[in-house]
Amino acid sequence: MSITKKDVLHVADLARLALTEKEIDLYTGQLQRILSYVEKLSELDTSGVAPTTTTVPPETAFREDRVTPSLAQEDALRNAPLSEKGCFKVPKIIE
């Protein structure tokens, strides 16, 4: 499968990365090489093989429905680049 500059731009958009022209060229080439390498996987017939997404025994972990203390508002916001009125402040969202 070959990856085009357009694909890279689309992916960068999905990933919210503002790539420079230079980065786009670089990544197009590098991703192409990596993807050609992983192409190797298609040699294998995996029909009927269940995917492995975790290696631990599939025993669901539950917690009881109990309220535990939250952070104080100021601690919740302490690390925020911008906050005001008890809220995280972000550039205006235009629908």
Partner: peptide
């Protein structure tokens, strides 16, 4: 009041993990 019922987990701070509420 805003952001008074939040913790590192629901704020999505780095390294935190979810554990499922059984009652839900």
């Amino acid at each position: 009041e805003p952001n008074t019922q939040v913790c590192q987990i629901c704020l999505g701070m780095p390294g935190v993990l979810p554990v499922l509420n059984k009652k839900a």
